[in-house]
Design a protein around this nucleic acid. Structure first.
Lengths: 205, 205
DNA sequence: CACAATATAAACTGTTCCGTTCAGTTTCTA
DNA sequence: TAGAAACTGAACGGAACAGTTTATATTGTG
């Protein structure tokens, strides 16, 4: 399981390969994406691709890591943490739900769930930069809000998880399993408003 | 999209095929499972298998449907719908969480999420016999409980979804993404008890 | 210019696997 | 017990795909 041929980053076309791989993986998933397709999408020969990456799996890992890092970076930057809890939660919930219902969020989730059985590193990397990061950020907010007397929470981590799950109700599974293929803003508003209401019924002051 | 060759249920070895398919799919996933392996595991020739099922996809769908139906049936049978709401919810929640955290429930979910992009029927069928069935059963219970004055719910469907999601908090994503690979009874109790508490804070009387 | 690193296209290897076919055997049933 | 229905085993067609090789071309650099 040791990498005799580690990833090589030098060379003019490294980024091209990564971009092409990202595009194809996002459309076709891991098994569904053929290396020929990736090479074509990247505008690169297959031999060149294999000179950068020893195999398909490591190529995907590199793409997934990049993409998760990029997402978690931009995810929670723009919410005003000093507003009233109801507003903070609504903003955060809607932002979150919009992301996980986007074509992009869906596909990353799909691939990570499917492949983390065969390649556990993929799943763990996703968890760290996705759910775990959300936990941390919300936990921090909860701590401050409790200190101000705005919320009454004992287990910050569990509360954060509960909120995230509440936001998924109804709309997310229907999308994930292809019962619908679009989610309206009205749906998002309805679900998140309801999630916030339930959440505050338990943890509000 | 019409099935020129529908599933044939007569024949001595129908159940053998289904059992073998279930075992192999659960270990190898959908793409990973080869039809030859399934036939071998079922103790049946490939020709026999194909005399029952027109293709691999429909074979899998049958397995998934059976298993979901079996599960939701056992949940309905097992739970005393006349107990106090807190007890009913605790029982239902624990039953549900035990199922979706079982090796079996995990794998079904994994496969359906992964494949419902390429084969939407798989996802939709799973949704119908899984989440949607849970909605129906819980919705019915809610209606009765509201009539008795035990609960105060306006949107039965959304409430059912919220309860299901609340039960997943914390423990389920960690399992799904390989952060842990076992869930203790204590974890299940803790998460469900908390889910019930949050749920009743909103909908209890 | 010369030379070395990098890139290319295309053919090739080896494998996996779905689904079909068919001649022959076993099991059921009337 | 005879014919029908179900089943078998093995082979095969055909396609997809990961990864390699080869002979050639492009690019950057001292």
């Amino acid at each position: 399981m040791n990498d005799a041929t580690p990833i090589v980053r030098k060379g003019r076309k490294f980024d091209q390969v990564l971009d092409g791989a990202r595009d194809v993986f996002m459309v076709d998933g891991f098994e569904g994406a053929s290396v020929d397709d990736i090479a074509r999408a990247a505008g690169v020969s297959k031999a060149t691709l294999y000179s950068y990456f020893p195999d398909k799996r490591l190529l995907f890992m590199e793409v997934a890591n990049m993409e998760c890092a990029r997402q978690s970076q931009s995810a929670v930057d723009f919410i005003d943490m000093n507003a009233a809890p109801r507003d903070v939660l609504c903003q955060a919930g809607k932002h979150f739900l919009r992301f996980i219902t986007s074509k992009f969020g869906q596909q990353i989730f799909r691939i990570c769930v499917a492949e983390s059985d065969r390649f556990p590193e993929i799943g763990r990397a996703f968890y760290k930069s996705g759910p775990e990061r959300m936990r941390a950020v919300m936990g921090e907010y909860f701590r401050a809000a409790v200190e101000r007397g705005d919320l009454d929470i004992d287990d910050f981590t569990l509360a954060a998880d509960q909120f995230g799950e509440l936001c998924k109700a109804d709309v997310w599974p229907r999308l994930m399993f292809g019962v619908v293929d679009t989610v309206s803003d009205a749906d998002i508003d309805r679900v998140v408003d309801n999630a916030v209401q339930t959440f505050l019924a338990r943890y509000g002051t």
